[in-house]
């Protein structure tokens, strides 16, 4: 375990962040109150990367993301966003956030377009209203997620997967430099998972930098450039999908390799098994 930690986390304070780093964490701890939920996280995400953050439920994936977004307390370490200290970033909308929501629970009626428009707000003046160009961007965002013909539909009547895509469109409307998605595929039916994967693929084609928190790689796997495994509040693995697959393969090959087993698969079903994880078994529509 020690060996792995030394290998996977770069020595903090030694190498400066690369020039194209959008997110740079050095030995950062995040949490609420005194007890951090994520400790000693060192992670650099460069422009154009598609990073999956995987790990079992409660491993600290979401806490790590919220830490990057400034939604919880950083108790140690440094956070650099687009080359400036995280606290000093004024233009927060450069980070596009797709929160984990099972439903878009609205206590009042609102159309998909109205929800997506809120994503445009950071880009317009305080007393300003959406202008023609802003409306176009909102419309295009809905189009990218395949909901152009449902712009005027009341969101609570949409399916779970469609609501999830409304949230992605909301983040896109702010024209972010990086998109942070928390479990975009969780609790979404098979047909909609497929649509979601297509949507993400479209974003990859557009060169959007993405960090996707998920506990099921599945259809996303082909899009990824990098996989980060979080467990027990620590980053346990950080590397290419190939290396991830190789190490996971080794685990399956040699059951006595308990070191790796502990690191990569702390809970037998936790890391990477989900409905999307078996694209060949024909059960996926």
């Amino acid at each position: 375990m020690l060996m792995s930690a030394a290998r996977t986390s770069p020595e903090p304070g030694v190498a400066p962040a690369p020039a194209d780093a959008v997110i740079d964490l050095r030995r950062a701890s995040f949490g609420y109150g005194e007890r951090p939920t994520v400790t000693d996280a060192t992670l650099t995400v460069r422009r154009g990367e598609i990073v999956a953050v995987v790990g079992p439920n409660g491993s600290g994936k979401s806490t790590l993301m919220k830490g990057i977004l400034g939604l919880n307390e950083r108790t140690a370490g440094t956070l650099t966003l687009f080359g400036v200290p995280g606290d000093e970033l004024r233009d927060r909308a450069r980070l596009g956030y797709v929160p984990q929501r099972h439903t878009l629970s609205t206590s009042v009626r609102a159309t998909a377009e109205e929800i997506v428009s809120t994503g445009r707000l950071p880009r317009i003046g305080w007393l300003g209203r959406l202008r023609a160009t802003d409306r176009q961007i909102v419309a295009r965002s809905l189009d990218v997620v395949g909901l152009a013909d449902r712009a005027a539909t009341e969101v609570s009547t949409l399916s779970g997967g469609q609501q999830r895509r409304v949230l992605i469109a909301r983040a896109l409307a702010g024209q972010p430099d990086v998109l942070i998605m928390d479990e975009p595929t969780a609790g979404v039916d098979a047909a909609n998972q497929h649509v979601l994967a297509d949507v993400l693929e479209r974003l990859v084609e557009r060169g959007v930098t993405m960090i996707i928190v998920t506990h099921e790689l599945g259809a996303l796997e082909r899009l990824l450039t990098r996989i980060v495994v979080v467990d027990g509040g620590r980053i346990r693995f950080d590397g290419t999908p190939e290396r991830y697959a190789a190490q996971r393969g080794a685990v399956h090959h040699d059951h006595d390799s308990h070191h790796h087993d502990d690191e990569l698969r702390p809970h037998p079903s936790g890391v990477a098994v989900g409905p999307l994880d078996a694209p060949h078994d024909g059960s996926r529509r």
Binding site: L71, R92, L95, Y97, P99, T118, L121, P122
Partner: peptide, 20 residues
């Protein structure tokens, strides 16, 4: 004047905080 922002905050406080 504040209607769009009041709507955004009431709709999703966490998201509103994240985007500043």
């Amino acid at each position: 004047a504040l209607r769009p922002r009041l709507f955004a905050v009431a709709n999703d406080e966490e998201y509103a905080r994240a985007v500043g």
